[in-house]
Amino acid sequence: MAVKTIAGVEVKVTDDGYLEDMTQWNKEIANEIAKELNIELTDKHFEVLNYLREKTIAKEALTIRSVGKSGIVDIKQLYELFPKGPLKFSSKIAGIPKPTSCI
């Protein structure tokens, strides 16, 4: 665990760079983490991020399959929004824990 300053805020992050406390998250933090991953966030990205955060609060397991059935994006679009890390990168940007699902 480490403390990192993202978008002017001191946040606690894991060794992998995931936020320890998802309540510390805000849009500026999301933008800054996304920039590190070479992703420019659009409204569509935020729809996905908000969905992931809602599901995490509801303690539902996240898979790319469930995101694909969310009605927000299909799986192909999810890969387009978060290339090479549809669940890993989106979770990191959403300020939620590293995904534990295999699917």
Binding site: A61, T63, I64, R65, S66, G68, D74, I75, K76, Y79, P86, S101, I103
Partner: peptide
Amino acid sequence: GMPPVDEFLEMITAG
């Protein structure tokens, strides 16, 4: 939450 085979194949090519 494991998809049936046809859907799993689609997930792989979608990515």
